[in-house]
């Protein structure tokens, strides 16, 4: 089985994240880049499927040169090889154009199964898996907390508010995973050393036949109009129980339309 895992480098959630004042895109130099946490679960799931069914795991990442560190981490976890889509023309791409660029690259490198984290910790749109499936003309099996493959059949448990849905499809397909699905392994010493020698193919947009006028900030369908720092959290309301605490609590909940 030829599995491709899409991995994104995001600013470390433990540090202060900033937008650039000039073009209102993410300031990727302001914080350390780390692997988007949910993508680690995607890599882990890909590795488990490979261990169970054989095949190959390819890491696909779109991002600046710095994203190489993220790719190496996925390789250190055990992925076999990587494709790094890197081009200045891609900077500022929104979810729609990112899905276009990734879909074109996936068509070029081929796949039986594409696995993604269900969202990234920076943009948090959570729509990429659906967009990719649509562009690739494959079934989408999103928000999986369990994935089973049997020959060309794939089944997942899709997490819902009320439990889960069982979703079945046939390969090729696109799957997005949630953090409940597994516990990602740490790269081992041997894994990190071996990752240095694994092939990483760097593609520019021309190599993947991506047209420049459909990607980048200028082609984005969504626009950041303005941004401001989140206001400091307002002080809470303290209700002193003078025998009527229950009533006051009920009134508070009613005022917020909880009851």
């Amino acid at each position: 089985m030829n599995i491709v895992v899409c991995v994104k480098q995001v600013p470390d959630t433990a540090t202060e994240r900033k937008l650039r004042s000039d073009d209102k895109t993410l300031d990727r130099d302001a914080a350390d880049g780390v692997v988007n946490e949910l993508d680690e679960y995607a890599v882990e799931e890909a590795l488990r499927l490979k261990e169970a069914h054989g095949g190959e795991v390819t890491v696909l990442s779109m991002g600046p040169a710095k994203a190489t560190e993220t790719i190496r981490k996925a390789l250190a976890m055990g992925a076999d090889k990587a494709v790094h889509l890197s081009d200045d023309a891609l900077r500022g791409s929104d979810a729609l154009s990112t899905s276009y660029a990734l879909a074109e690259t996936l068509k070029k490198i081929g796949f039986d199964l594409v696995i993604l984290g269900s969202e990234s910790t920076d943009a948090r749109t959570g729509v990429l898996a659906a967009m990719l499936a649509e562009r690739l003309g494959t079934p989408q099996l999103t928000l999986a907390n369990k994935v089973e493959v049997d020959g060309s059949a794939i089944a997942i448990q899709r997490v819902t508010d009320y439990g889960y849905d069982k979703v079945e499809a046939s390969l090729p397909a696109v799957v997005s995973v949630v953090e409940k699905i597994n516990e990602p392994r740490y790269p081992s010493f041997k894994g990190i050393m071996a990752a240095k020698k694994k092939p990483v193919e760097t593609l520019a947009i021309g190599d993947a036949e991506i047209s420049a006028d459909q990607v980048g900030l200028a082609s984005a369908w969504s626009e950041v109009v303005d941004f401001a720092a989140a206001p400091p959290r307002a002080a809470g309301t303290v209700v002193k129980d003078e025998g009527d605490g229950g009533v006051k609590a009920a009134e508070f909940l009613a005022s917020k339309k909880f009851v």
Partner: peptide
């Protein structure tokens, strides 16, 4: 050496 750098990265990750 690369081996020690790998240790730095791997242990820091944990």
């Amino acid at each position: 050496p690369e081996s020690a750098q790998a240790v730095q990265r791997g242990v820091a990750d944990i």
